[in-house]
């Protein structure tokens, strides 16, 4: 059954996420990136950052918190989800030690070939500094519940 279009426009409450030094290091290692700006404070300072910064796609971690909230609200299991596209617009990188919050909005739903295509927007902000960090936009394809595992 298709998702009820009346949910379009729903905004989910800000989800907090604290950027930790070890998580940034772990993420950089997982993507095999040896850039010292992700691990060494001094290297990051040479680029004008206050401290170690996170790789661009690290922003997906706080964004996922928003996805989870939305999926939970709409009763969608992760097994039915296909990530179609993802885009980030950055005001600046995430910096270790900062606490950000991600607000998620369901911008649109359209039906294509029996699937629901959701357009989701996440705004990542640092509330304490009152600064915008990045905006993420994604299209998620949700397969119908009835589909068999064929």
């Amino acid at each position: 059954m298709a998702i009820d279009p009346s949910v379009v426009g729903r905004v989910y409450p800000p989800q907090p996420y604290e950027v930790s030094r070890e998580k940034v290091r772990e993420f950089a290692e997982a993507i095999g990136d040896p850039n010292p700006v992700y691990t060494e404070t001094e290297a990051a300072r040479q680029h004008g950052h206050q401290d170690v910064v996170a790789p661009p796609t690290f922003a997906m971690i706080p964004v996922m918190r928003g996805f989870e909230l939305l999926m939970d609200d709409l009763g969608i299991e992760f097994a039915r989800l296909v990530h179609v596209d993802q885009r980030f617009t950055y005001a600046r990188p995430l910096v270790v030690g900062e606490l950000v919050e991600t607000t998620t909005t369901l911008d649109a739903i359209r039906q294509v070939g029996g699937n629901d295509l959701l357009t989701i927007r996440n705004e990542v902000r640092n509330a304490a500094l009152d600064t915008h960090v990045c905006t993420a936009k994604a299209t998620l394809l949700i397969r119908p519940e009835e589909e068999s595992d064929a």
């Binding site: 680029h47 950052h49 596209d85 993802q86 885009r87 617009t89 950055y90 990188p93 936009k137």
Partner: peptide
Amino acid sequence: GDPAAVVEYGVRF
């Protein structure tokens, strides 16, 4: 060199 130089980045899977 600096990840802060990335202003926008998007892909389709």
